[in-house]
Design a protein around this nucleic acid. Structure first.
Length: 425
RNA sequence: GGAGAGGUGGCUGAGCGGCUGAAAGCGACGGUUUGCUAAACCGUUGUGGAGACAAAAUCUCUACCCCGGGUUCGAAUCCCGGCCUCUCCGCCA
């Protein structure tokens, strides 16, 4: 969330950000109005408390010297009642303000293109050569069925639509991919590997910003009020919640594999075929906690780390700098990586790399003490490195042969017991 | 699931309802001493909020001893609820 002081001093910037992000956000003027009320209540309340503390001390003195204190006790009781009534008003007001504050989006960075949606995103990079085929490339669901590695009919029998059942070398390819990604990021890019819980509590979900806005998109276990993680970002970023780190600890780089669970409420009818959009998918996530002054160079290197996966897999991709209208609520700047899927004849988003500046850190209260002993909020970043299903799609569709077999990219072969191709099983 | 014990500052650990934002020790930081290191000695050492100030520095007030309620003129301390940790038993991959 934003600092209330920042909103107070820069209401127009905040309003402009809301406008540019096309967010259905809280009313800034209303927040400021409530904030003014809040502060005057606090002031009045604290003055009364001060008076009460003084009187209590007098009582203590009088009693110690054996005098009667009943008159002052009566007076003080009255003050206590007034304090209580002011506190009740505050207790009503404060959650209102917090709730409104939680629905104000982050301010986009200065170099983010202003636009209304994805059509205003700017392609900043393309990598790889467009693969040409002397036959018509098939979509992955055809390949998956022919090779008997993907069974969408039976997965929907087990769980409903939008769930993946991988079989044989399909399952092995999946496992090879996330092992390869984790190895790359830990060995080459300096990330620490984590294996976090897959269920998290409400506080964690609120900390990273999935709640309160997106509760409808989350799977929740009713009896325990736990949520299935929609991304490893949630457990991993929350690791240092309410902590004060040392500047010596920074930067912190974490990577984690988790399944991701998303109800995809409201997206019915979109990308329904195959495994483009599913309720459960695997992902390797990259998370960074860094010093504020380094966060934008850290964003570039995080993006490069994610790109590296596709480069090593030999998959064509492009990088888009998201416009204000397409950016997420909490991001200050965001790049999407999109991989080319020849069978679908389109690009698919496989990673979203964002700098949240101190927006998440403020919500989640992660600070660090710098060399001067000052407390400052860290900047948080994250990105997929990468999401699995769409990477699988790109591999199957890019490396398909005329006979329907699929060549395994060389970097994955050591993870596949040196199998070089997936053939009909 | 049953029974018990416990949650105090960066850590260990005292704490009678008022003199406790909190003893003591450790650590960290600064200084003195020292050829260097160590040791010794001296000093500093929380955070949030509100207000004063143009702002910073600073100052004042207020809150915080797991969280939330309650009792009281006054709560780290008493009472109730919750969360978490540990031990034992049961169940279990």
């Amino acid at each position: 969330m934003l600092d209330i002081n920042f909103i107070r001093n820069n209401p127009d910037k905040v309003k402009q950000a809301i406008d540019h992000k096309h967010e259905n956000a809280s009313n800034v003027d209303q927040i400021l109005e409530l904030d003014t009320q809040r502060r005057s209540l606090i002031h009045a309340c604290e003055q009364l408390k001060s008076k009460r503390n003084e009187k209590s001390k007098e009582v203590s003195e009088l009693k110690k010297n054996g005098h009667d204190a009943s008159r002052i006790i009566e007076e003080t009781k009255k003050i206590g009642d007034d304090v209580k009534s002011l506190e009740e008003k505050l207790k009503e007001l404060e959650p209102q303000i917090t709730n409104l504050l939680l629905r104000i989006p982050n301010i986009p960075a200065a170099d983010v293109p202003i636009g209304k949606d994805a059509s205003d995103n700017v392609i900043v990079k393309t990598w790889g050569q467009r693969k040409t085929f002397d036959f018509t490339p098939l979509p992955h669901w055809e390949l998956g069925r022919m090779l008997n590695i993907l069974d969408m009919e039976r997965s929907s029998k087990i769980s409903g639509s939008g769930f993946i059942l991988l079989k044989g070398l399909g399952a092995k390819l999946e496992r090879a991919l996330y092992c390869f990604m984790l190895d790359l990021h830990t060995r080459e890019h300096g990330y620490t590997e984590l294996f976090p819980p897959f269920l998290v509590n409400r506080t964690s979900m609120t900390g990273t910003g999935q709640l309160p806005k997106l509760e409808e998109d989350m799977y929740r276990t009713a009896t325990d009020d736990l949520f299935l993680v929609p991304t490893a970002e949630v457990p991993v970023t929350n690791i240092h919640r309410d902590e004060i780190l040392s500047y010596k600890d920074l930067p912190i780089y974490y990577t984690a594999y988790t399944p991701c669970f998303r109800r995809e409420a409201g997206s019915y009818g979109k990308d329904t075929r195959g495994i483009i959009r599913v309720h459960q998918f695997n992902k390797v996530e990259l998370v960074k906690l860094v010093r504020p002054e380094t966060s934008y160079t850290e964003l570039e290197s995080l993006l490069a780390n994610a790109e590296k996966v596709l480069q090593l897999l030999g998959l064509e991709y492009r990088v888009a700098k998201l416009s204000t209208g397409d950016m997420s609520f909490a991001a200050a700047k965001c790049y999407d990586i999109e991989v080319w899927a020849p069978g679908l004849d389109k690009f698919l988003e496989v990673s979203s790399c964002s700098n949240f500046e101190d927006f998440q850190a403020r919500r989640i209260n992660i600070r660090f003490r710098d060399e001067d002993g000052k407390l400052r909020f860290v900047h948080t970043l994250n990105g997929s490195g990468l999401a699995l299903p769409r990477t699988v799609i790109a591999i199957l569709e890019t490396y398909q042969q005329q006979d329907g077999t699929v060549i395994i990219p060389e970097v994955l072969q050591p993870y596949m017991r040196e199998i070089k191709a997936i053939t009909r099983q």
